[in-house]
Write a protein that binds this DNA or RNA. Structure first.
Length: 357
DNA sequence: GTTCCACCACGTCAGAACTC
DNA sequence: GAGTTCTGACGTGGTGGAAC
């Protein structure tokens, strides 16, 4: 590992540890995350007010959505019923069943029963060994809080198909260009380009072969409805041909009608040399006989898997960022609520305490 | 202009989590 | 239990700002 890499790794780890919830640490009872702690507070109705240590606050059955009526015991011994400032208690960012169970286990630790402690410890360890899913957490959160957008379940993922090629017809071949784009050529002559760099189905573009009639020798014009394209790309198709993304002035006049406006044009030509650098050839998923075909099939599968994983990693990072944003906003909300509660308690103290003047 | 540093995004791998 | 999805870990490259 390089020096730079190690440093970056350490930084990354520090950042990740600050937001870590129930992933990999063994002793979670000590290292609860902010969200976990705040969640525990919301669950038990306890409020941490360090500056008011003598004022004990007990929640009185303040379930989610019910009015937050709190019993405040003042230093003078008086007990006052308080209508809290939090009229609609926000659920914690982390609402997954695992973490809720963790909180129960944590609270149970205060019991003196050694037996229950052992059982809880086992349960907790069992639960903590599971990693939270950002999608699950956020979806559960969003089901409780209408304001938070739900992460859509990609249908294509459920069907085990990568998002970018979800609607792709059964391709005869899949190719990757040097720029990372994937080109699938179906039996019907439809060419679809999947751009891993773009989000969602926008990366999927359909091409229509227009080689009907009398095409000029060695060239087939392809209509390509791309959103943007820069530079020239070259990739291969079956039959020892090459698909070339033409420069704007590279076309014969008779073909210009096919490529109007900003649409770049692809031509299928006979290859001039061997495979260009960066192009990955993939075998057709047809009958496999020779070891070479098997190897090609294995390569194709690997490429597909890598492509899927690439997209999954992107999606995972996006979810993680969303999750962290959610946590941060939750912290901000809780800080405001905490401040208000402190002010409320101060006001009540002023009201209830005997006047010294 | 160069170097250093911090940050970010990405691709890949491995293994946990999940689905069927 | 096998296959798929998700996510932490790791390494890499790009970028912008600060210091020289």
């Amino acid at each position: 590992m390089s020096k730079c890499g190690r440093k970056k790794y350490m930084r990354t780890n520090v950042r990740q540890m600050t937001m870590e919830t129930v992933e990999s640490q063994q002793d979670r009872s000590v290292t609860h995350s902010v969200a976990e702690r705040s969640s525990a507070h919301m669950q038990t109705g306890q409020i941490s007010v360090p500056t008011l240590a003598q004022v004990s606050v007990a929640g009185s059955g303040t379930g989610r959505g019910s009015p937050a009526v709190t019993l405040v015991q003042l230093p003078s011994g008086q007990t006052v019923q308080v209508q809290g400032v939090i009229q609609t208690p926000h659920p914690s960012v982390i609402q997954s069943p695992q973490i809720q169970t963790v909180q129960v286990a944590t609270i149970a630790e205060t019991d003196d029963s050694a037996e229950s402690e052992v059982i809880d410890s086992h349960k907790r360890r069992e639960i903590l060994s599971r990693r939270p899913s950002y999608r699950k957490i956020l979806n559960e959160l969003s089901s409780d809080v209408p304001g938070i957008p739900k992460i859509e379940e990609e249908k294509s993922e459920e069907e085990g198909t990568p998002p970018n090629i979800a609607t792709m017809a059964v391709p005869t071949s899949i190719y990757q260009t040097s720029t990372g784009q994937y080109i699938a050529i179906a039996q019907g002559g439809t060419i679809q380009i999947s751009n891993p760099g773009s989000d969602g189905v926008q990366g999927l573009q359909a091409l229509t072969m227009t080689n009907s009639g009398a095409p000029p020798p060695g060239a087939t014009i392809v209509q390509y409805a791309a959103q943007s394209a820069d530079g020239t790309q070259q990739f291969f198709v079956p039959g020892s041909q090459v698909v070339v993304q033409d420069e704007e002035t590279d076309l014969a006049p008779s073909h210009m009608a096919a490529a109007t406006g900003d649409m770049p044009t692809y031509q299928i030509r006979a290859p001039t040399t061997a495979l260009p650098q960066g192009v990955v050839m993939a075998a057709s998923p047809g009958s496999l006989h020779s070891p070479q075909q098997l190897a090609e099939e294995a390569t194709r599968k690997r490429e597909l898997r890598l492509m899927k994983n690439r997209e999954a990693a992107k999606e995972c990072r996006r979810r993680k960022k969303e999750y962290v944003k959610c946590l941060e906003s939750r912290v901000a909300v809780l800080e405001v609520q905490n401040k208000k509660l402190i002010e409320e308690l101060e006001t009540l103290k002023d009201i209830c305490s005997p006047k010294t003047d």
